[in-house]
């Protein structure tokens, strides 16, 4: 493993990819949106809901999970949990956008062959492309979360709600599941990129990854399960296993000969 070569590619990817406006918008706008959306929701609910009238609408299982938290704050935590899923979605969306441009882009400009002619190993190249796509996504996710978490008290989050935001459930989702999502996303993007010739198509196909996450949102709304620490930990474990498979498959696709003779 040659770190100079990996770093060279990562820097090259960033220099190239961040000249693309669409990618910049995805990488910068999404985290800002996902930081301010929950803040707006927090701010408006804090102002209007003085009584906990509709708390009874919450799934009973969730109410129970709130424990000693006053019903109104429980309501806020419930709503914020939907945003928690968005934080898990972000590291899934951003890397596909970068990886699709960096791999399909190189494929269409035929610049992969000179690269493959250098002494770089395909593992190094794949890791470099992966890091180039995953690191900005992880940084954006974490930055977005911290922005939200630190500003939350300013728009009326009570100590109880803030504690929920910094609970193991949230921290696991953002700091453990986030990177795992990014890894999955990158490898999936590699597999898709080997088959398509349009970066936007690659991005859209890789977008199917968010479907299981949507299930998480609707599952909670339907009261099928409660987003808690155990659930997040289970998601992380399952994701780690899926990641291992995705890395294996990604590496299978990303072979010199296959790239030069089979990629269409």
């Amino acid at each position: 493993m040659n770190t100079t070569r990996i770093r060279t590619i990562v820097e090259k990817e960033w220099a190239e990819v961040f000249k693309n406006r669409l990618v910049i918008v995805t990488v910068a706008a999404l985290p800002l949106l996902f930081a301010f959306l929950p803040l707006v929701v927090l701010g408006t609910t804090a102002g209007t809901m003085s009584s906990a009238g509709d708390v009874t609408d919450l799934p009973p299982s969730f109410l129970k999970a709130c424990g000693a938290l006053p019903p109104f704050e429980c309501m806020q935590v419930y709503i914020l949990n939907q945003f928690l899923v968005l934080y898990m979605m972000m590291p899934l969306i951003i890397p596909t956008s970068i990886a699709a441009y960096s791999i399909v882009g190189e494929k269409t400009t035929r610049s992969l062959e000179p690269l493959l002619a250098t002494p770089i190993t395909t593992e190094e190249l794949l890791i470099a492309k992966g890091l180039a796509a995953a690191l900005p996504a992880i940084a954006a996710t974490w930055g977005s979360f911290l922005l939200f978490a630190l500003l939350a008290p300013l728009v009326g989050a009570t100590a109880g709600v803030s504690a929920a935001i910094f609970s193991p459930t949230w921290l696991t989702a953002v700091f453990l599941i986030g990177p795992l999502m990014a890894v999955l996303s990158v490898n999936f993007a590699v597999m898709v990129s080997s088959r398509v010739t349009d970066p936007r198509a690659a991005e859209q196909i890789a977008g199917v990854l968010v479907v299981p996450l949507m299930a998480l949102i609707f599952g909670q709304i339907a009261g099928l399960f409660v987003i808690n620490f155990t659930l997040m930990l289970s998601v992380a474990v399952v994701l780690a296993v899926i990641d291992a498979g995705a890395i294996y498959l990604g590496a299978q696709v990303f072979q010199r000969e296959a790239i030069l003779t089979k990629w269409k």
Binding site: T4, R5, K12, A15, E16, R110, S111, L112, L115, T118
Partner: peptide, 20 residues
């Protein structure tokens, strides 16, 4: 297969590093 958005020199520097 040049990196069209990057300068000529940057293109060469990338490959010089890859070749060690």
């Amino acid at each position: 297969g040049m990196y069209d958005r990057l300068s000529a020199e940057r293109n060469l520097l990338i490959f010089a590093r890859l070749y060690g």
